[in-house]
Amino acid sequence: NQESVVAAVLIPINTALTVGMMTTRVVSPTGAPAEDIPRLISMQVNQVVPMGTTLMPDMVKGYAP
């Protein structure tokens, strides 16, 4: 099972992602793949992402898996 990126903390809208904001988990439906964490760092979210929420590609500005 592939791990997806999950918010480790509450991420406010327009916040640039840091490694400490993200964790990985096997979830369904799958979100952004765990191996993309290095690409996701410094990208901004376009909505509030509550802690424990799977990071879906459409939540991150300019990100395409």
Results as ranks from 00 to 15, higher is better:
P12V: 09
Q47V: 11
V27Y: 00
M43S: 04
A32C: 13
A64H: 14
D36T: 02
S42H: 12
N14K: 03
L40H: 01
I37H: 01
V60P: 05
V49Y: 05
V48T: 15
T23R: 07
P65E: 10
V19M: 14
Q47F: 09
G31W: 02
M56G: 03
V19E: 13
M43L: 14
E3A: 13
L55Q: 02
A16C: 13
A32M: 15
P29C: 08
G52E: 04
N14Y: 13
G20N: 13
Q44K: 14
Q44M: 14
Q47Y: 07
T24E: 08
A8Q: 05
V5Y: 02
V48G: 02
Q2I: 14
M43A: 05
T15N: 04
A7R: 01
V19F: 15
D36R: 01
E3H: 11
Q47D: 03
P12H: 09
M56A: 02
P38Y: 11
V9A: 02
E3Q: 13
M43V: 05
M56L: 10
V9M: 12
P65K: 10
Y63V: 03
V9C: 12
S28F: 15
P38G: 11
T24F: 09
A7P: 00
V5S: 00
G62W: 06
V6T: 03
V27P: 01
A34P: 10
M51H: 04
T23Q: 08
T24R: 13
M59L: 07
V19T: 11
A34K: 10
T23F: 09
N1M: 12
T15V: 09
V27G: 05
R39W: 09
V19N: 10
E35R: 15
T23W: 09
V27K: 02
Q2L: 12
M56E: 03
V9W: 00
V5W: 06
P33K: 06
Q47E: 06
T23L: 10
V6A: 01
Y63S: 03
D58N: 14
L17S: 06
G31A: 02
T54M: 00
L10Q: 07
T15K: 04
L40I: 04
M22V: 09
P50S: 08
P65I: 11
N46T: 13
S42Q: 09
P33Y: 06
